[in-house]
Design a protein around this nucleic acid. Sequence first.
DNA 1: GGGGTCTGAGGTACCACATGAGGTT
DNA 2: GCAACCTCATGTGGTACCTCAGACC
Length: 379
Amino acid sequence: MLKENSRGIHGGNTSNHWSRICDTCQSAGCTVYCRADSAYLCTGCDARIHRASHEASLHERMWVCEACESAPAAFLCKADAASLCTTCDSDIHSANPLARRHQRVPIMPFTGMLYGTPSATHPSGLVMGPTGVAAKIEFLTQDDDQTILEEDEDEAASWLFFNPVKNINNQSNSIGQFFGGEVDKYLDLDEYNSCQDNQFSNQDNNQQQSYNVSQKSHGSDNAVPIQYRKSTDQIHNHGFQLRMEYEAMKNGYDNPTSISDTVSLSSLDVGVVPEYTMREVSVSHPRPPKGTIDLFSSPPISMPTQLSPMDREARVLRYREKKKARKFEKTIRYASRKAYADTRPRIKGRFAKRTDEGVDQMFSTMPIEEGGYGIVPSF
DNA sequence: GGGGTCTGAGGTACCACATGAGGTT
DNA sequence: GCAACCTCATGTGGTACCTCAGACC
């Protein structure tokens, strides 16, 4: 399933670990680069260090490139909703004509604190962030949690309230039981694998989709950035994903009625990547780590029983970012395959075998290699 | 109100085959 | 370690078919 996604967008990053870990704690992936300290920091360390003093809070920081995760981001690609360093931006957006059309804006350094009390010198809260040139960092406090919940109440409500009746009738569904209510059969526990301790994730897959214009480095299958439509299972995935995040941050993972401690994955389709294979959650890293997951060799999934305020804030922020970034269109990952599919003969919508005549007709206007088909158009 | 039928919307299985990942030599 | 070769899972789109909900009688 993920066979063709097992490479990072730069072709060689197959590790389950971050490209660059936090210079301070050495245990989590870095998310920001502090110019003043010349240090790459994870979200937790960034908050801790730059909350320590007023002076520290004035340090200019840059988001780390979401592609290579090893250099400060310089541009925000609006199409990919990704912050990229100059190198990755160049690589990705020179891959094909469509990629070149992506609108990018420079990312300026930000100061202040991402979490906690706003800096007194930044009452506006205007900083430069990964989601906009002049994104307003929303300083999250416990009170803000409530504000967020109120803002999103309408949408979130549909995610939060499981149907207890269906749950009872759905006893055979271990996942349904696990979450205390009706759960989509198209489970995608994506975001729940994104804690810093977790080494398993489908980040490669996510990244490849996010940066689906960047595959020139590993083959001719250049993906196209155009997104057509999104199948309902993907929509379910997003809905459930966000619902889970919302539920988690709402409860701080200490509500035993909504989330139990373990889950059986045996009934899940292999293609579904349960992100929540964490051993524990001390989450502050806003991005899922790289790598894929082994559903059947992983230890039983445990849900956290406590979540620190910082973790909650991080999750709230991540929830909102993800909500903003939701896309419901289908992603074409392999343009060459699409091109072939478009040109294949069909019978009642099904692919049909090519006859020699059919091939000749089909490619009568295309250059045909000896004994083969035409050159794969590349986007 | 209950049951049967019709209709539309939405979801999915099916097909062939180039491609690429991973294993072997 | 590297290259060449081999094997096999994967992704791709249009259509028919299936399921379900709602309307109607």
